[in-house]
Design a protein around this nucleic acid. Sequence first.
DNA 1: ATGCGACAGATGTCTGACATCCGCCAACCT
DNA 2: AGGTTGGCGGATGTCAGACATCTGTCGCAT
Lengths: 237, 237
Amino acid sequence: MVIQLRDTLVELIRDEQLKPGEQIPTEHDLAARFSVSRATVREALKLLEQDGLVDVVHGRGRFVSANVGLSVNRPVTRFESVTEMLAGLGYITTNRTLSVERAAPTDEEAEALGVDAQGEIVRLRRLRLHEDSALVVSVSAFSTALLGTDEPADLDFTGSLAQWLAGRGHDLQSSAAQIQALPMPSELAALPEVDGKQAWLVISERCVDAAGRSVLFSREYHRGDVFTFHVLRRRGT
Amino acid sequence: MVIQLRDTLVELIRDEQLKPGEQIPTEHDLAARFSVSRATVREALKLLEQDGLVDVVHGRGRFVSANVGLSVNRPVTRFESVTEMLAGLGYITTNRTLSVERAAPTDEEAEALGVDAQGEIVRLRRLRLHEDSALVVSVSAFSTALLGTDEPADLDFTGSLAQWLAGRGHDLQSSAAQIQALPMPSELAALPEVDGKQAWLVISERCVDAAGRSVLFSREYHRGDVFTFHVLRRRGT
DNA sequence: ATGCGACAGATGTCTGACATCCGCCAACCT
DNA sequence: AGGTTGGCGGATGTCAGACATCTGTCGCAT
């Protein structure tokens, strides 16, 4: 109910054309208007404050803040698989697996997955192709323990890796990501489908499942002339 | 007090080594422990829920969620000027102004600033140099109204543009930003300090002041081999 | 004119109560 | 014996009312 009220209040602010600086109704009024208690109203308003949509001044009231009016479509802060992202952008792509193999982890992979640097991980390299050109190049690493009795070569990763992991009990929930602009490593740039002259927008992320375990480290190269990421930025916090 | 309690609870979760899935003390216990009312505890906990740090199950309790353990240093979601960012990363840079001039806005600039496409804006192009090499190339646009009686050429922008705007009553608060990986436009790549072969990490953002006005549209090119942005990503919301 | 206090109205916090949901377990029925 | 039901404890969700604290305003006394 608090959540519902919060969303209602957001609508109210957006729809009533309340401009930054304007005062919003008091807790008492809102409680009366929506037939809920003041405590409930306060919890909803607190959420809006944390979102930076309203500012509060003790003794005076609440005022819509500067951030209203700023919004973006698919913020990078929303965790989603490459498959989901491409579908959301309307791209029809085909997946091609370049390689699936057991290999020694890079330092980065070892640290992210919490495995020994002398150990072994599964590394999966894939292309997302659109009209015979690679839009995204993915290099993913995960623990060999997830294979169970299967060998890497037996598996079919042309679908969503996130889905495959979910089937093994690891629902990806969130990640800590790095964003860089890099050229394509020469080994991958050598492929005919991969444009080696592009700037590539690279997301390297450590993904954790619902239980908080680091399950996947992946680096996704997004073609620079195709992809744009969006994000809202705020002072403080 | 709610905010203070929220931060205390975050510490409590982090320091007590509570792992994802573990239950946190009940509202009643927390209220007793910190000598506050249950209402106050609830407001603080609601904030943690919105942050995705705890999950709540009606009738059972609250449990620390998967996102605990994920954190990054200087998230892109934190709005800061290039000057602040470079200082935070420990770079000592010198500013060089390439040009300040009245000019016709690009479509993008006109839309972001809410000015007529046939109108005029001030465009400022600057370099942040480190050891005679450009780390960041900025192209900023703002309304000519901000000049007052001054002419562009009279102004000194070697300091922080954000500070200059603040002095004119426009404290930059937040922005909606795009992130791309692009080559440097040829005109700027021609400069000896600018590496034209680099991939550049580009942030184009519309910045709004405390009153919610779109004050500044800027595009910052960050050298790809130097800069890495960080961000937390979460499912939902 | 200036300063001070009363006052209204807003948010911040507290208290106690009841509603609802969940997990558990004992009593019950078949 | 086994499955169902109902009660109970404990957790969150919501409510009503009260008081505390802060802000701006207005009127009155100096």
